[in-house]
Design a protein around this nucleic acid. Structure first.
Length: 589
RNA sequence: CGGGGCGUAGCGUAGUGGCUAGCGCGCCUGCUUUGGGAGCAGGAGACCGGGAGUUCGAAUCUCCCCGCCCCGACCA
């Protein structure tokens, strides 16, 4: 295929729009790949659409290779199936809803578990039909509260979503692993650097789950990686190791102290160190010695509200994302002034274990951070304004209703598997695979007859790749100060030929070369613009980011063509006689 | 939805009450130029986000609305 710059529908921009911040967004706009239409909604221009289609083609090829079968659903869907699974309401404001002329409710599909489940239910009824994997590449709609970063997070985007159907858990695990393998080859082929991390299953429900994250500054997900073993997890799925029970035999009995005006951890530590009667003989108190008790208000799917108290070391905050992941599908809000007035037994700034717990005075469920093991010694609130308890020992002086691992994760925290320090990094979620289980099959009645004749509920897996997002993720990982640097297979062309000079010869030669390459299956962009200065063409070629740039210009009189590698900047002069073969080898070899 | 910032031509921007809203890029015409975003000359392009108000006079001041971007709570 030949793309001629003289007639290509594109206009490159010297300046990026002021509102574009992340590199992929700035460059995709500058190079004339995409244009914004509405918040989180983008159009693809010819160059962008070429890249998009390449990514889609690779994803499709890898799915087909894995033996998955492609189907296609509408984006416009009726309400009923989503009503059956509760997601019509559960999805909340993120769902684009609309009505037809008769007032019937419809939605624009945010994901298609329901439709796939029903499709299989409509066709199959025997265990002999399974396992089955079907997929589609579809435009999805989610009315995101905050679209951002260009096509990295849009409200309309393209996703490849597949679903596996198995009779039993062993089958589900096998289908899951087949997908994992297929995703590995897909992302390798797309030229993406990625890590596979343990994840929580989010709003979809289900158990085992992993995410494919493309490490990038502009990524939205934070993940931890162990410096010693191969543990990697989304922070939401981080597991804090439980320290051994500590010996508290030497700790004096708990005692309440007057500590006026110490409603914060910082003030409490300061006062405790400043006063001789409170000072610790061996060392200064630090925030880690205090037990902070934070209260949240949870809202269940049915609208019911219940408070939840969490006790954790005072130097840590609760990570709301981790908390939501731990209590989902319930949603979390901070405890507000009005909630405190309703719970008089909770003294803001001085809440202690004494008032908490299902059997305590408040009756509020109380969960502890894993670090608060039996035998640990704490300073904590005494449930009276201006008073704290010292030498309160977990297990000896107080207990809770259970453990919850939702404290913020920090660089250097201990790995849940081996105990070595972990590092934190950010990444773009480009793929997510998980074992859904029977949630949807149950809700929609997808059963098959087993060998013994009994009806069994099918177990499902759900697997997604953000196709349009992958374009942005690839761009994000393949840029330099001059522009985009596409991996060959997704690039809009294999070579970008720039003809320069005033004379006709370079242009005529470039045209011939271009046709020869085209006839041998090389995709080429030809900059055949006359009267455009060489600097403009060089800059455009670098901005557009095709992997190989060929310059036909002043070297031609000596029989030489310059070939430049976009990524490394290396240049070589190739004799005219062998240039076609050289390029074909470069591209196809 | 909470916090912060911003709306002037396709893009980047100047303009804190005073004449016909200025500049760069890009675009059109002509001549020159042709290996790193060329030069000269001449052009086209703006309901200054919208509405109301204050004023002799508003891009500029006031109020309301709308939109956008960034950071947080959701997700491919």
């Amino acid at each position: 295929m030949i793309t001629r710059m003289s007639s290509l529908f594109v206009r490159t921009l010297r300046d990026a729009p002021a509102d574009a911040e992340v590199p992929s967004h700035r460059l995709l706009v500058r190079a004339g790949y995409v244009r914004r239409i509405a918040p989180g909604v983008f159009s693809w221009l010819p160059l962008g659409y070429m890249v998009y289609r390449n990514v889609e083609r690779i994803v499709r090829a890898e799915m087909d290779k894995a033996g998955f079968q492609e189907v296609h659903f509408p984006a416009l869907l009726p309400r009923e199936p989503y009503e059956s699974t509760g997601r019509w309401t559960e999805y909340g404001d993120n769902l684009f809803r609309l009505q037809d002329r008769k007032g019937g409710d419809y939605l624009l599909g945010p994901t298609h578990e329901e439709m796939f489940t029903l499709m299989v239910k409509g066709e199959y009824s025997s265990h002999k039909d399974l396992p089955l994997v079907i997929y589609q590449i579809q435009t999805k709609f989610r009315d995101e509260a905050r679209p951002r970063a260009g096509i990295l997070r849009g409200r309309e985007f393209v996703m490849k979503d597949s679903y596996s159907f198995d009779v039993d858990d062993a089958g589900l695990r096998a289908s899951y692993l087949r997908h994992r393998d297929a995703y590995v080859s897909t992302f390798d082929r797309l030229g993406l650097e990625y890590v596979i991390v343990s994840a929580t299953s989010g709003a979809m429900g289900g158990s085992a789950s992993e995410e494919f994250l493309a490490p990038t500054e502009s990524g939205e997900d934070t993940y931890v990686r162990c410096t010693a073993c191969d543990f990697a997890a989304n922070v939401e799925a981080m597991v804090t190791p439980v320290p051994p029970v500590s010996d508290a035999s030497g700790v004096p009995a708990a005692h309440v102290e007057q500590t006026p005006d110490t409603p914060t951890i910082a003030s409490l530590v300061e006062v405790s160190n400043a006063r001789a009667d409170l000072r610790r003989p061996d060392r200064d108190w630090s925030a880690e010695d205090t037990l902070k008790n934070v209260v949240f208000m949870l809202t269940d799917v049915d609208g019911g509200r219940r408070p939840l108290a969490i006790g954790l070391p005072g130097d840590r905050d609760v990570d709301i994302k981790r908390l939501e992941a731990a209590v989902q599908p319930a949603t979390v809000e901070p405890f507000e002034e009005s909630d405190f007035t309703r719970h008089r037994e909770l003294v803001k700034g001085y809440i202690g274990p004494g008032a908490l717990g299902e059997t305590g005075t408040s009756g509020i469920k109380y969960l502890l951070d894993p670090r608060v093991v039996a035998g640990t010694r704490w300073i904590t609130g005494a449930n009276t304004a201006g008073q704290h308890v010292y030498d309160l020992v977990a297990g000896r002086d107080f207990s809770a209703d259970g453990v919850i691992d939702v404290a913020e994760v920090r660089e250097g925290d201990a790995c849940g598997l081996c105990g070595a320090p972990v590092t934190l990094a950010r990444g773009i979620e480009i793929g997510h695979i998980f074992q859904l289980g029977r949630k949807y099959a149950e809700a929609l009645g997808l059963k098959v007859q087993a060998e013994n004749g009994e009806l069994v509920t099918v177990t499902m897996g759900s697997y997604g790749i953000g196709v349009s997002r992958a374009v942005a993720a690839i761009a994000e990982q393949h840029v330099d100060d001059k522009g985009l640097v596409w991996p060959r297979e997704v690039a809009p062309a294999d070579v970008h030929i720039v003809a320069t000079g005033k004379a006709d010869e370079p242009f005529e030669f470039a045209e011939t070369l271009c046709e020869e390459l085209d006839s041998r299956g090389v995709r080429v962009i030809l900059d055949d613009r006359r009267g455009v200065s060489p600097g403009v063409k060089f800059n455009d070629s670098e901005l557009i980011g095709v992997p190989t740039i060929v310059i036909v210009g002043r070297g031609l009189v000596d029989g030489l063509i310059e070939v430049k590698d976009r990524a490394t900047g290396e240049r070589v002069d190739i004799p005219v006689a062998s240039i076609t073969d050289y390029l074909v080898d470069l591209v196809q070899g």
